[in-house]
Design a protein around this nucleic acid. Structure first.
Lengths: 226, 226
DNA sequence: CTGTTGTTTCGATCGTGATCGAACTATCAA
DNA sequence: TTGATAGTTCGATCACGATCGAAACAACAG
């Protein structure tokens, strides 16, 4: 009897602890199999299967089968952004899990968000590109300028020739820790890949933490100074 | 055993149909009493009280008592933004309520989001202010320029002298229908009030729809042209 | 003081949905 | 073929949380 989209539906979906754990695990950006996600959520494979079915049905995750495995991913950067936003509100509501480990500071510094770089490093890169007008904001639209394109290319960051509407080259994503935007979209993904390939940074075990080496850190700040 | 904020907590909170209805009702920006919200959600006052207690505890809503009434509001523009983002995903997931009424087009055109203007009109105003550099983006920060301030003042929009960190003058809010940003913050609130006071637009019953009069429409487009 | 209305607390009920055991279907490796 | 691993479907269980009746408390109007 009420107008509007069914908020409660997706919220209830994310509201289950097992599913929430799965989604958070997928925030690392890596594709995970059903059983890995079961492990991650602390449930048996059957229940995992049940939950993943619901998540896929709602379009929150996508899957591609490969042999006898099914690899799951977050459906979209939008979904990732939603989860980030929710993290932000959960944070300040004091609804942190009891054990707020020592990992958290590291998470604030640099972490992976779906498939791009977030945290202080992510925000700094974003602001730096913006300041030099390598990146321009136009409403919510975000565009890479000609200068910006050549800048990244010379650096060695791989970029596709042209962008489509479905997969925008640049996109801003809200950050729960810094309360600022950072770079998402294809360019964001490529940039993170670049850092990892150069060995300037690497992932920490199965968490979302990105750790910069001493060398990588100075390189990063040289390139993305303000 | 897991790091990070408890996403599942707030999601579960929003996931209950009754609470979701309440929150959506509060998206109109008006303060509502506990019994009005009970009506809105289709539950008895007791259950309403129960739910509101939980929502307030989690910091999703705030309340101020006035006599024997308790007026509830969304806690924050951030909460409103989260609900908007969720609407967006619920939309495209095809999780709309069975009866997708004729209201929806009107909602896309212009609607109230917490306490500011959203929809096509909101986006246009935002873009227009940005194009004339009355508004500048700086990361996620948003600033009103001197020109912008005098522009709005001359128009007749009331603005406070200075902004605090807690209540920023300008803020961008993501739009589920247009997938763009629109203006939130104090300036956004004042702007909407201005439209309503001038009689250029008015609310439709208890919904989120904002309806512009023929005169108001032409005035609006004259001011916020692109 | 006695009514009326708004809101809350308590207790009991009841339904929905998460969970797992068991059995079943795929895919691959010998 | 046999065996092993990944994933699913079915059915039954079980707990949590939403719900409401009854009764209390709070704020007002006579």
């Amino acid at each position: 009897m009420k107008e509007g989209p069914n908020i409660a539906g997706i919220a209830a979906l994310i509201g289950d602890p097992a599913r929430a754990n799965m989604l958070q695990a997928l925030m690392t950006g890596v594709a995970l199999t059903a059983s890995e996600l079961a492990q991650e959520a602390g449930v048996t494979p059957q229940t995992s299967s049940f939950h993943l079915g619901r998540l896929a049905e709602a379009g929150l995750v996508t899957l591609r089968k490969q042999g006898r495995h099914k690899y799951y991913n977050l459906a979209d950067a939008d979904v990732a952004a939603l989860l980030e936003a929710m993290s932000g509100i959960a944070m300040r509501s004091g609804m942190t899990r009891v054990r707020t480990g020592p990992k958290e500071p590291a998470l604030r510094k640099a972490r992976i968000c779906y498939n791009h770089l977030a945290g202080e490093y992510g925000v700094q890169a974003y602001d730096s590109l913006l300041a030099r007008e390598f990146l321009v904001e136009d409403g919510e639209q975000l565009h890479l300028t000609g200068d910006g394109r050549s800048f990244l290319s010379e650096l060695g960051v791989a970029l596709p020739d042209k962008e489509t509407k479905r997969r925008p080259l640049c996109k801003s994503c809200l950050d729960w820790s810094a309360r600022r935007s950072h770079l998402a979209g294809i360019a964001g993904t490529s940039l993170l890949s670049f850092f990892l390939e150069q060995g300037w940074a690497k992932r920490v075990d199965g968490s979302r933490i990105i750790e910069f080496s001493k060398n990588g850190d100075s390189r990063f700040h040289a390139i993305f100074s303000l």
